[in-house]
């Protein structure tokens, strides 16, 4: 009965959405803000990647919000997972075989380089802090998967996480105190398309990348370390 009513609701909702798409002017959206950003985005921010111009320039404060949401989720996750009992050496899973361990060691530098490349070139090519940060997190989590008995250094993680977040806000505050607007893009815009261009946007993306990487790696390590018998 319960399932039936769920299906009924779902069906009704789908019907409702399809009616809605019938009313909407699909395929012909009004381009007011979009057009304005397309016309002036590159010249106002100096970023070759327009998405970055929006994410860190026009809507930089949204990105700070997203970053904090991730932080809040990781913190809340840590709160729920903390059972107070760490896995002991004995209860940890066995190490993986030779092939997985060697592959993990080989992949680690490659993943770090790829992650950093994507973070640093965020203002030029598709990608950026969030995407690169996830790759960085994977790089640091890989050794843990190959050898579950090793533990991650949480002090370093929280240091990186805290200070990269603080750096993002710090850059914003420098803009506030020197130019009167929070998160104002600073430094020279340079030549569009070069690595050192777009002012502070690459620095902001670097902070995002490090924070996302440290946060996700820390969360995954937390999941790995807590004794799952008591969760």
């Amino acid at each position: 009965m319960h399932q039936f009513s769920s299906f009924l609701f779902l069906g009704g909702f789908l019907f409702f959405l399809s009616v809605l798409t019938g009313i909407l002017p699909l395929g012909d959206p009004p381009m007011i803000i979009g057009q304005a950003i397309q016309n002036h985005g590159v010249s106002e921010t100096g970023a070759a990647n327009l998405v970055t111009a929006v994410v860190l320039g026009y809507r930089g404060i949204d990105t700070l919000g997203e970053l904090s949401i991730l932080f809040a989720a990781a913190t809340a996750g840590g709160l729920v997972l903390a059972t107070g009992k760490k896995k002991t050496q004995a209860s940890a899973d066995e190490d993986a075989g030779f092939i997985v361990k060697t592959a993990a060691e080989l992949l680690f530098p490659l993943l770090v380089v790829a992650g950093l490349y994507i973070v640093i070139h965020g203002h030029l090519t598709p990608g950026g802090g969030f995407q690169g940060g996830v790759i960085l997190a994977a790089a640091f989590f890989l050794p843990l998967l190959a050898k579950p008995s090793t533990t991650m250094n949480h002090n370093t993680m929280s240091l990186v996480e805290g200070f990269s977040g603080a750096a993002f806000i710090g850059i914003g505050l420098i803009g506030l105190f020197n130019h009167g607007a929070f998160l104002q893009p600073l430094l020279s815009k340079g030549v569009v398309g070069e690595l050192f261009s777009a002012g502070t946007l690459p620095l902001l993306y670097l902070a995002v990348g490090l924070k996302v990487g440290a946060e996700l790696a820390g969360l995954l390590a937390n999941l790995n370390e807590e004794d799952d018998e008591n969760v």
Binding site: F71, N155, F163, G165, A166, L176, F182
Partner: peptide, 24 residues
């Protein structure tokens, strides 16, 4: 008046740094 931005920037900054501070 532009300092009103601090009302959300500073608590956020504190929240990010608190785990590090409390390790000290």
């Amino acid at each position: 008046k532009e300092l009103i931005v601090l009302t959300f920037a500073v608590p956020l900054l504190m929240a990010f740094l608190l785990p590090t501070i409390s390790r000290v």
